[in-house]
């Protein structure tokens, strides 16, 4: 089992990043939409945002590590895509990095606008870096827009993956799930 990425496909680390973050990001979106509608007397009124903030900070670190891992590894080939598809997939992939980074930072700014740190599950504090009067309100609006944009991009990304898998008989989906070895071996045997 490959740890690093190769030109054939994704190694274990990239695949773990991909699927774990995908599940957590979708869960965070659902948690976020649900928690902002909570009644003041809900038992989760305080704990749900605490969990959301904690997970968000972990996602921010994970995103930075993932980006470092991405630029430090060979890029798996996408030559079975058309030039247009290749451009689109480049846009979607880097769009995710930019959107997620902005999304996570905007969330961080909501909670730290008046100087309070974010406690990550009580394990450690992420200090406030930027303080500005009233910053929490524009940051919150941006956070909401970016969250919906991220999910929209995820839908595009998923539909594209399914299209490549079912219509183009491409291995892009299977290699993200099981790595490069199986598919490339299979290709060789065929």
């Amino acid at each position: 089992m490959l740890i690093r990425d190769t030109s054939e496909g994704y190694g274990l680390i990239s695949r773990l990043f991909h699927w774990l973050m995908a599940v957590v990001i979708v869960a965070m979106f659902i948690l976020g939409v649900w928690m902002v509608g909570l009644d003041y007397y809900s038992p989760y009124y305080n704990s749900a945002p605490d969990i959301h903030r904690s997970v968000g900070m972990i996602l921010l670190f994970a995103l930075i590590l993932r980006w470092l891992w991405r630029i430090g590894n060979p890029k798996p080939t996408d030559e079975d895509l058309s030039p247009l598809e290749r451009k689109a997939s480049w846009g979607v992939h880097w769009g995710f990095y930019v959107l997620l980074f902005a999304l996570l930072v905007s969330g961080y700014l909501i909670s730290t606008a008046d100087g309070d740190p974010i406690s990550v599950f009580g394990w450690f504090d992420v200090p406030s870096v930027v303080q500005a009067r009233g910053l929490e309100t524009p940051a919150g609006k941006i956070h909401r827009i970016l969250a919906y944009a991220t999910i929209a991009l995820a839908v595009v990304h998923s539909l594209a993956a399914l299209k490549h898998h079912f219509f183009d008989k491409s291995t892009v989906l299977t290699r993200m799930w099981s790595g490069p070895n199986q598919s490339s071996e299979k290709d060789r045997h065929e």
């Binding site: 945002p49 909670s111 008046d114 309070d116 929490e136 309100t137």
Partner: peptide, 15 residues
């Protein structure tokens, strides 16, 4: 919008 209760998260909600 200048409401201030000494907690940014609450002020955001008040707005």
């Amino acid at each position: 919008a200048s409401v201030d209760t000494n907690l940014a998260l609450r002020d955001k909600h008040l707005r």
